[in-house]
Amino acid sequence: DSCIQFTRHASDVLLNLNRLRNRDILTDVTILVNRQQFRAHKTVLMACSGLFYTIFTDSHKCNLNAISLDPKVDPEGFAILLEFMYTSRLTLKESLIMAIMNTAIYLQMDHVVDTCHRFIKSSDPS
């Protein structure tokens, strides 16, 4: 038996999902972070974040079309993590690393938290 593995398929699907997000096609939720609004697909959010998985598997919350995050969440940190969910690319800036890491802890994105820890360790001169 033979099987053809399309090696780019996962990234091609993600690219298309990101284009859909950018064009606001079939986005089904608005995430409110302080006063900033982010449109996204619930399925992508819950596939990447333990917090969103818990929210959208709750039958009382899964139909909400707007979710407010804790006001302590930094909108810039959230924007970087949302971009990561849709692109696989995490932009780590030293000035924002704590905001990104705290937001990743809040969103329960454990592997991103580990990566932030490693980034902080590697950039600490001591």
Partner: peptide, 21 residues
Amino acid sequence: YEGVNTIKEMGRSIHEIPRQD
């Protein structure tokens, strides 16, 4: 897929949604 002869296809797998119409 153990025991299956897997052939790698490196090109695009699906159509590309345009950035904007």
